[in-house]
Design a protein around this nucleic acid. Structure first.
Length: 218
DNA sequence: ACTCCGATTGAA
DNA sequence: TCAATCGGAGTC
């Protein structure tokens, strides 16, 4: 039985309760949902195909581990909001806050499969200049196969998007469900961290070619 | 005020 | 393998 999906304009916003849960549960459920940026005359978006869960005080790798600060304040706020931070002086990363007000926890969006406004995203990434042929699988994969890349593709910055409600119809950055369901989810260790590096909190859709890094064994 | 360093990326 | 490049957090 083949699953059914609806067009983007009929996809539904996720509910607050969806994110009012443990980040590990949200991570797995979030795979297959769609992250959308609404531009003036353009829609940019991709299917979420790789994420990582970050917990609270018991997770040394989490920004919330050392307690509430001006920088990580969103993590302690209500669920379903964007936590955007700047890393290595170069890139932004997007997280979505989980758990009720007062409890920190989030999901890091690590990779998207481009599905809408691909030309616009490629342009934001600076790919169109050197690589005009967007139909090339290699170039298509370069659009959003990493946390920093997808932020650049959707023009996500801290000043523009941090603390934004991702579940509001008024928001220009939202998460929606078009009915797609991942057939198989793979869990691995998180990438690029030194503290709490052993916890299996990275989740990705099996065999999807748009993930960051190389394909793990099934 | 000063130092250290990171949930990344792309080029060498 | 490594530089780029910034700001948050801890130390002096």
């Amino acid at each position: 039985m083949e699953q059914s999906t609806v067009p983007l304009n009929r996809a539904t916003l996720l509910k607050r309760a969806f994110f009012n849960r443990d980040p590990r549960i949200v991570s797995k459920q979030l795979l297959g949902k769609i992250l959308i940026r609404k531009q003036k005359s353009n829609i940019l978006g991709g299917r979420i195909i790789e994420v990582e869960a970050y917990l609270g005080a018991d997770d040394a790798a989490a920004h919330a581990a050392a307690g509430r600060t001006a920088r990580n304040d969103v993590l302690f706020g209500p669920p379903g909001h964007a936590y955007v931070y700047f890393i290595y002086g170069v890139h932004y990363c997007l997280n979505i806050s989980c758990l009720p007000e007062g409890d920190a926890g989030c999901v890091l969006i690590r990779a998207l499969e481009p599905i809408a406004g691909i030309e616009g995203m490629a342009e934001a990434r600076g790919l169109h200049v050197k690589h005009p042929d967007l139909s090339s699988p290699r170039i298509l994969r370069a659009v959003a196969s990493g946390p920093g890349k997808l932020c650049e593709a959707l023009q996500i910055t801290r000043t523009r998007d941090n603390s934004k409600d991702l579940l509001s119809p008024d928001s220009d950055l939202i998460v929606v469900d078009d009915g797609y369901r991942a057939k198989k989810v793979i869990t691995t260790k998180r990438i690029g961290i030194t503290k709490s590096a052993e916890m299996p909190l990275r989740y990705l859709i099996a065999r999807n070619p748009f993930i960051s890094g190389k394909q793990p064994a099934c």
